[in-house]
């Protein structure tokens, strides 16, 4: 495939990762932190941005590591451990770097970075990119799109949950229950986007 064709495909993959195949709402990845952090808008933005950044970069790092280290050595089954180590090391590195060079950014995002290592969405993004056999350029679009999709979902949820504070909800449904119902409705709304990219 030509370079321009790949870039166009990367764009399509990016848009579909944001809307039609949202990593949170149709693949259920990153639900744990989604349920616990979406109480406040501010924290959600911080975590969402951190996820977007880490997702976009680690999918590329993992692509390189997989195709240039594991495939030549025939060690594909080893990818889980390698990916986890790369993600953890990268997150640690970023945390140190922004602590040193940009304290305001550290206060905004720093607390969320350690949480990200165990966020299933990050590892999930890397595994999906291997299974679907994306090229390097397409992977860049996929990583960015998945991160933005996650940010969008948690932001929308935080906005809705702030409105729910004063509502009277049955006792058994409070907390996770009502959040899941809202997430289901959001997933339903996002299904409406699937017509946009039909036939791709």
């Amino acid at each position: 495939m030509t370079i321009s064709g790949e870039i166009w495909q990367a764009f399509i993959v990016c848009i579909s990762a944001i809307f039609t195949q949202n990593i949170l709402l149709s693949y259920f990845l990153g639900l744990c932190s989604f349920l616990s952090v979406s109480r406040e808008v501010k924290a959600s933005v911080g975590l969402g941005l951190a996820v977007t950044f880490v997702m976009a970069t680690t999918t590329l790092l993992n692509w390189v590591a997989y195709h240039y280290i594991l495939v030549p050595l025939g060690l594909e089954f080893f990818r889980f451990i390698l990916f986890i180590i790369i993600i953890a090391a990268f997150v640690q590195f970023v945390e140190m770097a922004i602590d040193r060079y940009s304290p305001p950014l550290y206060y905004a995002l720093g607390v969320f970075l350690p949480l990200i290592t165990v966020n299933c969405a990050i590892l999930g993004g890397s595994l999906f990119m291997i299974i679907r056999d994306y090229s390097f350029i397409v992977t860049s679009g996929y990583g960015l799109g998945s991160g933005i999709g996650w940010l969008l979902a948690i932001l929308a949820m935080a906005g809705i949950r702030q409105r729910l504070v004063n509502e009277r909800i049955p006792r058994g449904l409070q907390g996770p229950g009502i959040t899941l119902i809202i997430a289901g409705m959001m997933a339903l709304a996002f299904i409406g986007f699937s017509g946009v990219l039909q036939g791709r």
Binding site: F28, P170, L173, L180, A183, M185, A187, I191
Partner: peptide
């Protein structure tokens, strides 16, 4: 479809 999983889980948690 995916939304069904959310709804089912919510109902089970509720009960």
């Amino acid at each position: 479809m995916p939304p069904g999983a959310f709804f089912m889980l919510a109902v089970v948690t509720w009960i």
